[in-house]
């Protein structure tokens, strides 16, 4: 069956290399990560509903299931 041959990529490779890095590289990586998240916030600011309060208030659902 064709579906069985498709396998997800293996996990865990990136973090193993992280563990072996000296402290300074870890700090640098963290800094890079933080700056990436800041870029992300800028992107999210662009798409986030402008009136958050109204948006949140008007999201009313009925129960389901």
């Amino acid at each position: 069956m064709a579906q069985e041959q498709k396998q997800p990529r293996r996990s865990g490779e990136t973090e193993e290399t992280t563990q072996d890095l000296p402290e300074t590289d870890v700090a640098e990586r963290k800094e890079a990560l933080d700056s990436d998240v800041d870029d992300l916030l800028d992107e999210i600011d662009d798409v986030l509903e402008t009136n958050a309060e109204d948006f949140v208030k008007s999201f009313i659902q009925k129960g389901g299931e």
Binding site: V56, F59, I60, Q61, K62, G63, G64, E65
Partner: peptide, 10 residues
């Protein structure tokens, strides 16, 4: 799964 106002759906 929730509207944060008391309703939940599955």
């Amino acid at each position: 799964n929730t509207d944060n106002k008391g309703a939940s759906y599955g």
